[in-house]
């Protein structure tokens, strides 16, 4: 099985709003994919299509080699899903809820369940209805991973965690990739977390895929140039096509450039300037990612 999921020409409209607009996407396995985008860019809608909960107006969605709307029990027991809005059954205790959901899957791993309860510091005697948002999220994550899923889909899973628990969860996700060779799709706004674990980045904007690249490639694609002129004169505006953002102040300038298309030597010669190249992290390049066209 080459791809965990494949999407071709997926378009979804709600009344007059086009939520997803011709999405094409393929994710191989194993891998951790970060699904990024601003609010309302279509992340959750895309995820619900992958899970077969929503049906496309156009195009096809294939999850674990089945059309996602026709996913059967046999495939679904290999998928873990943490929805954005977690509700669960209020009246059960955490322990009861774990026992209940464990019956859905043939390969439930009690050892992993206990390990995660301890690592995430979740009290299993508590009633689900009394859990805080963070603890509810922990339970939802545990419910989604103890059956050794091949595909794990997490819709904003870490938003309510404290930094320590968040760190442990991220570490566990890496372990999931190592041990189960799972493919993980994680949508998030917390770019620092995503940056730590993902190897592939997909960015949505207004229902379109605007970035679909490996994180390493992205980091090498963009960089920041700090420029000091040697002869005292810099243009008011740099017109090189690879300059994406600029800030010029007297003899100094700060440019954000598309490194892959830039020519340092030519630039240095043209402007008689010293250039120091600084890398950009994911948070810094995010505005570039969601603004840019795939072309």
């Amino acid at each position: 099985m080459a791809y965990a999921f494949e999407i071709h020409g997926l378009t979804k409209r709600f009344d007059t709003v086009t939520a997803l607009d011709g999405i094409d996407l393929r994710v191989g396995r194993p891998s951790i994919v970060g699904l990024l985008g601003r609010n309302g860019s279509g992340k959750t809608t895309l995820i619900q299509h992958l899970m077969g909960l929503q049906l496309p107006n156009e195009g096809t969605v294939t999850t674990l080699a089945r059309p996602s709307h026709a996913l059967r029990h046999d495939e679904l027991i290999h998928i873990g899903y943490v929805p954005q809005e977690i509700r669960l059954l209020d009246w059960m205790t955490v322990e009861q809820h774990l026992r209940y959901v464990s019956c859905f899957y043939p390969a439930w791993d009690t050892g992993r369940e206990q390990k995660l309860l301890a690592a995430l510091e979740l009290d299993s005697t508590k009633t689900v209805g009394t859990l805080s948002a963070g603890n509810l999220q922990k339970l939802a994550v545990i419910l989604a991973v103890c059956h050794h899923p091949d595909l794990l889909v997490l819709d904003e899973p870490v938003s309510d965690f404290d930094p320590i628990v968040r760190g442990r969860l991220l570490e566990f996700l890496l372990e999931l990739v190592r041990e189960d060779e799972a493919t993980i799709l994680v949508s998030s706004h917390v770019l620092r977390d995503v940056e730590r674990i993902v190897d592939w980045v997909v960015c949505l904007d207004k229902g379109r895929v605007v970035t679909d690249a490996s994180l390493d490639e992205l980091k090498e694609r963009y960089s920041e140039w700090r420029i000091v002129s040697t002869d005292g004169a810099l243009p008011a505006r740099f017109s090189e096509p690879y300059v994406l953002a600029q800030e010029v102040s007297g003899r100094q300038a700060r440019l954000v450039v598309r490194q892959s298309a830039a020519d340092v030597a030519a630039f240095r010669a043209a402007h008689a300037a010293e250039i120091t190249v600084h890398p950009l992290n994911l948070e810094e390049m995010f505005p570039l990612l969601v603004r840019e066209d795939p072309s």
Binding site: R72, D90, W91, M92, Q96, R99, C103, P106, T127, G129
Partner: peptide, 18 residues
């Protein structure tokens, strides 16, 4: 929250199957 003690009946079953 204080009122909401767990009061549900226990659930005992193995794998539910297809």
């Amino acid at each position: 929250q204080a009122q909401r003690r767990a009061q549900g009946t226990a659930w005992r079953a193995g794998y539910l199957g297809p």
